[in-house]
Design a protein around this nucleic acid. Structure first.
Length: 389
DNA sequence: AATACGGGGCA
DNA sequence: TGCCCAGTATT
C-alpha cells in the first residue's frame, strides 16, 4: 500500500505532486480518494464487522444461499431463515433433492417467493448437470436463474476471490455520497456510472472479497440511509457530500409517483343536427388538471360507471337529460398524464333544435365552429373528432 | 426502460 | 404513511 502523503509538503517535490493533481495533464492518473478509498474501508471493516455465519465460510453454496436470502432483505430478517435452511439442507445436493413444497414452506414469510423457486431450480441444475460443482466465475454465475449482477459478483468474490465489484443499494449510497454523484440512481445511465466507478475502486482494493464486504457493511452500519454517522466516519474529509453538507440529499432517487386512476362520465348534450348542431360545454375552474379548459357536462366516479343510468346526475341536469334521448352506446376514451390515467365515458344525448330547457350553472351552448376554437383537453378533442369530425 | 414481486422495521 | 432493505426477471 502506498504511504499516506505528509500533511504539508516538506520539499519542492511534494508540492509539485500536489499541484500536478490539479493540472489537466494528469487525466490518466487517479485522484487520491480513488486509490485510498478501498484500503481505508477495508481497515474500517476489520474493526467494525459484524459476526455473521456466512462470513465464516468460502463454501459457494452457503455464500449463494445467504446472498439470495439477503436480496432486498435486512440481515436481521434473513438470518433466522439462513440458519434454518442450512440445517434443513446442509449441502447443495440436499437442496437439489428437496421437496419444493417443503422448501417454499421454509421460505414462508420472507417474500419474493420466486427466489425460492429459482434457488431450487439452480440447485438441481448444478447437481444434475455440473456434478455438483458450483460455477466459479462471475460470467458463468450470471447465467444461473436468480443470480443477477449483484449476486454473481458477491459469490465470485466471496467464494472464489474474483476481483469484481458488488453494486447494491449500500454501494449506491456510499459512492453517491463520497463522490458527490447527483445522478438519479434509478436510471440506466446512473447504473453505468456507478458500475464504472465501482470497477475503478475495486482495482485498488487490497483484497476483493474484503473490500466488497467492507463497502456494504460500511453502508449498512456507518453510511446509513438516514442519520449517517459522519462525525466518526473514516472518509469524512474525502466525502464530497459531507464537505458540502449534502449527505442527507444523496443518493438522488426519483420516487415513482403512483399513477392515480380517475373515471369521468360525460354527458354530451347536442341540440340540433349536422353543421347547425350546438354542444353544451363548460369551463373547468377547480384547482385540478385541465384548469380553464372546456369540457362536457359530467361527473367523476371512483369506479368505472357501468352505464349512464348508474351515474348520479346532479339534479340541475335532470331536466336536460329527460328532454333528450340517448344516442348510441357509450364512447370510451383514455388519456395518460404523468401521474394520472383518466378514463372517460361519453354519453351523447340529443335534444330538439328548438329545445329551451335551462342549462345548469356554467354550461353554455356552442356551435361546432365555436367548439373548435375552445381550449379543450386532448381527451375531449379526441372524442369530438371521432364523433363529429 | 418500466414494472412486478413481499414482508418487516423505522421515522 | 412512505421509505428502504446484501435485486432479479419480465414486459
Amino acid at each position: 500500500m502506498k504511504p499516506l502523503a505528509p500533511l504539508l509538503p516538506v520539499n519542492g517535490e511534494n508540492l509539485t505532486i500536489i499541484l500536478n493533481w490539479q493540472s489537466a495533464g494528469n487525466a490518466a492518473e487517479e485522484a487520491p480518494e480513488v486509490t485510498h478509498f478501498g484500503p481505508t474501508l477495508e481497515r474500517w471493516y476489520e474493526r467494525h464487522r459484524r459476526d455473521l455465519p456466512w462470513r465464516h465460510t468460502t463454501d459457494p453454496y452457503r455464500i449463494w444461499l445467504s446472498e439470495v436470502i439477503l436480496q432486498q432483505t435486512r440481515v436481521a430478517q434473513g438470518l433466522p431463515y439462513y440458519l434454518r435452511f442450512i440445517e434443513a439442507y446442509p449441502t447443495l445436493v440436499d437442496l437439489a433433492r428437496a421437496d419444493e413444497r417443503e422448501l417454499l414452506r421454509l421460505w414462508q414469510g420472507l417474500g419474493y417467493y420466486s427466489r425460492a423457486r429459482n434457488l431450487h431450480q439452480t440447485a438441481k441444475l448444478i447437481a444434475d448437470t455440473k456434478q455438483g460443482q458450483f460455477p466459479d466465475t462471475y460470467h458463468e454465475l450470471l447465467t444461473l436463474k436468480g443470480i443477477g449482477t449483484y449476486t454473481a459478483a458477491a459469490v465470485a468474490s466471496f467464494a472464489f476471490g474474483e476481483r469484481v465489484p458488488v453494486v447494491d443499494g449500500n454501494v449506491y449510497r456510499v459512492l453517491a455520497r463520497v463522490f458527490g454523484i447527483e445522478e438519479d440512481i434509478t436510471t440506466t445511465q446512473a447504473k453505468k456510472t456507478f458500475a464504472a466507478l465501482a470497477t475503478r475502486l475495486m482495482a485498488h482494493a487490497v483484497d476483493p472479497a474484503t473490500y466488497n464486504q467492507a463497502i456494504m457493511e460500511f453502508g449498512a452500519i456507518q453510511c446509513t440511509p438516514v442519520a449517517p454517522d459522519c462525525l466518526l466516519c473514516p472518509v469524512q474529509q474525502q466525502c464530497r457530500a459531507y464537505l458540502t453538507g449534502r449527505q442527507h440529499k444523496l443518493p438522488v432517487k426519483k420516487k415513482k409517483a403512483p399513477v392515480r386512476e380517475r373515471f369521468f362520465t360525460y354527458f354530451v348534450f347536442r341540440r340540433g343536427e349536422g353543421e347547425a348542431a350546438q354542444f353544451a360545454l363548460r369551463e373547468r375552474t377547480q384547482r385540478d388538471i385541465w384548469q380553464n379548459l372546456y369540457e362536457f357536462y359530467g361527473t367523476e366516479t371512483d369506479e368505472p360507471a357501468p352505464n349512464w343510468r348508474s351515474v348520479d346526475v346532479p339534479g340541475e341536469a335532470n331536466n336536460l337529460v329527460e328532454a333528450g334521448v340517448l344516442v348510441g352506446p357509450a364512447i370510451a376514451e383514455q388519456q395518460l398524464l404523468s401521474h394520472q390515467r383518466v378514463k372517460a365515458f361519453f354519453y351523447e344525448i340529443a335534444l330538439p333544435e328548438a329545445d329551451k330547457t335551462a342549462l345548469p350553472e356554467g354550461l353554455r351552448w356552442f356551435t361546432r365552429a365555436d367548439v373548435e376554437q375552445l381550449p379543450k383537453p386532448v381527451l375531449i378533442t379526441a372524442y369530438f373528432e371521432k364523433q363529429f369530425g
